[in-house]
Design a protein around this nucleic acid. Structure first.
Lengths: 169, 169
DNA sequence: GGCAAATACTTGTTCCTACAACTATGCCTG
DNA sequence: CAGGCATAGTTGTAGGAACAAGTATTTGCC
């Protein structure tokens, strides 16, 4: 371990980055709960399913895309199934696996929630950034992800030219 | 509500920013738990106290600096007091308030944990960024904080010229 | 083809956090 | 110098996530 301290500018930047990481997710979570009775996490479960072929994913694939542990996802999906947002079926290919399907109702809930969520993302993130800063932020995030997620599990296929599928966000 | 969709680049950047916000805090939390038996939150409780005059803060001031609710902080501080990391005393100025003091032991734990934590921050955040990107990131975070924390409660005094106090992180 | 190991999930427990209700102290107003 | 209101914390309860253990299915190997 090298124990080099951060210089003053780095320390300053870190304090602000840390503040953003604490405030932004909870701000978005609040808006989703209020407007759509969805948690931030549940929203992205629906979003990931909506982007998948046939709107179906196996539990483990869904867990990877949402950065969830399997136990956590299992509990959440059970409750979402009780609400009718998703449906679970056994995988005919592999009896150990469970397929999670996005229902019509779940898709409708996502479509209803998406504009408000996207609007919140714009307000909090993009409104005050010019085009150059947006592309700078992309490069910076990429650099960090080299260390944090070298496999690109979470960025999925978003490191290639953008997937225009809607709704995403 | 305006319901403008994000353009492709914005969507791409958002996916990556979101990934950073999910992975980075938990990566830092893991390292602190492993190396120092401190949560990310507890570490910053100690850090905020260490930077305060006399290494003392009132509960409400500490809650503001750590972005915690008072109930949450109350529980955590009670446990940290049981471990001997902090000490609580009534405020002679105001009988409603409680002063939280950093103990020598708490300071020692912070000093022992800081190098590893700072090292992790460097590895995950700064190592792959050049000086220009660091300053870009500072400006970008500032822009977001205009909306997220207009009062600057969390950035405290870090928007002014850097406070060289060590250890911070 | 049968046994061991690996995979894919589920269930149960524990810890942590948020929200709500409560207590105690200080302030302010008539 | 009351009575009412605001402030500062604590405690209790309920929901969410992490970790550990258990179940079922498939795969690999002799």
């Amino acid at each position: 371990m090298v124990t080099t301290w951060l210089d003053d500018e780095q320390l300053n930047v870190w304090v602000r980055l840390k503040a953003v990481m604490e405030l932004l997710p909870s701000a978005l979570d609040s808006e989703l709960r209020r407007a759509a009775e969805l948690t931030y996490f549940e929203y992205y479960v629906l979003a990931m399913l909506s982007e998948a072929d046939g709107r179906v994913l196996r539990m483990s694939a869904l867990a990877a895309r949402t950065n969830a542990t399997l136990p956590r996802l299992s509990h959440v999906v059970r409750k979402m199934a009780e609400r009718g947002l998703v449906r679970r079926t056994p995988d005919p290919q592999d009896g150990r696996s469970v397929l999670v399907h996005l229902t019509e109702e779940g898709y409708a809930v996502l479509v209803a929630a998406a504009p408000g969520h996207v609007d919140a993302v714009r307000r909090y993130v993009f409104d005050r950034l010019d085009d150059e800063q947006v592309s700078q932020l992309g490069a910076i995030a990429d650099a960090m992800l080299d260390r944090l997620d070298p496999e690109g599990v979470l960025t999925h296929e978003y490191r290639r030219p953008a997937d225009p599928g809607r709704p995403a966000g």
